[in-house]
Design a protein around this nucleic acid. Structure first.
Lengths: 324, 324
DNA sequence: TTGAAAGCGCTAACAG
DNA sequence: CTGTTAGCGCTTTCAA
């Protein structure tokens, strides 16, 4: 920066101003400085800037996993919006592990991000306290928790379970199963699903729990167990599309006709859901929109917009296709 | 940090030492300081540490896209390894756009990462120069370019095209098509594919170019065009599994038997490839391994291990399944 | 509109 | 093993 200042014949502050508040400087000065910047190939040290100023222009994002998952869409949505606004994303994965989440949060807060996005609720109370103590805008996503730390952008997972249950009941299915992960959001879907079935007088659906993140093979194995155990069954709700696609493919492999012999519903409305043969009944959620709405909220918050904690419920929508 | 020092009755440096080189301090002092840290809930400011020290403990990762893509695996592999070593990941997506890539690289280098990973070659010469000038360890992935900036962890995309071509020829397919994206890696696969077919005396395969990143619908549409144009055709190679799965599903929808009426091969060996009905012939690449190997290389480089630019070719492997 | 001085919170020498 | 002294490269007052 000193080199740039010398070459342009100005002081350090002026260089800083050209870079950060170009309007506060004479056009002539601005051009001289910019020319020097280009000539030297000067890349401002944002670390020093963050330390001296107040803003780091970093936003932290914490997700359970990104490989092979719906959360990748949310990261994409967040990143698309934030990069344009001059922010950089610090990414971390918890792997659904409380210990790892805590280490991650510590590392991220150490970078003094201007704001933070995370999926769901903290896995431990200690992490929650750290987040609260950080004193930065926070947006939690993918579920409308009762006591959020700050902002929320999501939907009711229980409602997702409910709409599937209502759909099953309306279609006349009575011998029902549930397959889902052990994470908080899958459990919420299950609870909404079970409660609605109970209210309709349907027998409680036996449940199979699979690891999170769910993989195609888990869905395949789960439906195998269901088909092999000899009990009569009409329909299965799997808590993610990935699981449901595994189930659908297993039925196809065995020659079990869907939905005549077994109806299948998933969750998430991933690209592939619509493309399956037959197309998969699922619950639509836009991971991308969750990300971009979260970005909007955080951008407004770091800009000091006085709004109070927002609670944005994107809702859920049953997409009835041919597997039910 | 001052509060911690006061509470523990030591100086600032001692606190710093306890946090960074705990072995260089008396156990008693260490415990006193740690107690004070916990009591206050002190979270060290890593930004200040990065500025004062030399290392930022940040590693930048640049990928074309993460949503719905094979690169998500690489990020996962990188992140799993790096987080354990105390590094944080700065993530950015180029969207296959040179302009956006340049802005991204500028922003990332401004954070002074200790090292950087990127997929493929820079989209523009200007970006390449910035990267070189940064003077940090860099690892390029997913392709073995002739003139890499520094380290490379990848495989030959041309070889991927070759093994599929050889497989098609061995199976007796002669009327062949190619479907792929416009990005550099898809093109390399196509070139290897075409060259090998030409060497075997097979007619040059007409090609359909689809957008990058490829989606299931692109594969479906491409195979529709191929089936509808009336020309006889035996086999199609689609440059990613996502495209190939779209093609396979379209065949299923139309009742076109695979591989009797049309053989299909993909690339990437994603989870789903093995699960399809029939299981998809593809080329195996471990995105996860690319990420973890890249992490190993960078970790060694930042630790000052004198090794010279590494060139790790993970190779390609044809996985012949039932679609061919 | 521009500049001078004073830090931001930490670590790298060096000395004790 | 511990402390003192200088900065790291910027941005923020404040004054000119």
């Amino acid at each position: 920066m000193e080199d740039v200042a010398r070459l342009a014949g100005v002081s350090l502050v002026t260089v800083s101003r050209v870079l950060n508040t170009p309007d506060a400087v004479t056009p002539a000065t601005r051009q001289a400085v910019m020319a020097a910047v280009r000539r030297i190939g000067y890349v401002p040290n944002l670390t020093a800037g963050a330390l001296a100023g107040s803003r780091s222009r970093i936003i932290a994002a914490i997700v359970p996993t990104i490989a092979n998952s719906i959360f990748a869409d949310t990261i994409q949505g967040l990143s698309d919006r934030l990069e344009g606004a001059g922010y950089t994303i610090l990414l971390g994965q918890t792997g659904y592990d409380a210990q790892r989440e805590k280490a991650l949060v510590t590392a991220m807060l150490g970078r003094r991000p201007d704001a933070l996005m995370l999926v769901g609720a903290p896995l431990s109370a200690a992490t929650g306290r750290m987040l609260t103590a950080a004193g930065i805008p926070i947006v939690q996503t993918w579920e409308m928790m009762r006591r959020p730390i700050d902002h929320v952008v999501g939907f009711s997972n229980a409602a997702a379970g409910r709409v599937v249950a209502e759909h099953f009941v309306a279609r006349g299915y009575r011998r029902i199963r549930f397959v889902g992960g052990a994470d908080a959001r899958s459990k919420a879907r299950r609870e909404g699903f079970e409660a609605t079935l109970a209210a309709a007088g349907v027998a409680p659906p036996p449940a199979i729990t699979v690891p999170s993140p769910g993989m195609v093979a888990h869905g395949r194995d789960a439906v195998s167990r269901i088909l092999d155990d000899g009990q009569p069954v009409d329909a299965v709700f799997l808590s993610t599309d990935v699981l449901a696609i595994g189930a659908l493919l297993e039925c196809q492999r065995r020659g079990v006709t869907v939905p005549q012999r077994l109806a299948i519903a998933g969750f998430g409305d991933q690209d592939l859901a619509r493309e399956m043969v037959p197309p998969l009944t699922t619950v639509r959620i836009s991971g991308l929109e969750i990300g971009s709405r979260a970005a909007d909220l955080l951008l407004a918050a770091v800009a000091g917009k006085p709004s109070g904690a927002q609670r944005i419920d994107l809702g859920v929508q049953l997409i009835a296709r041919a597997t039910t």
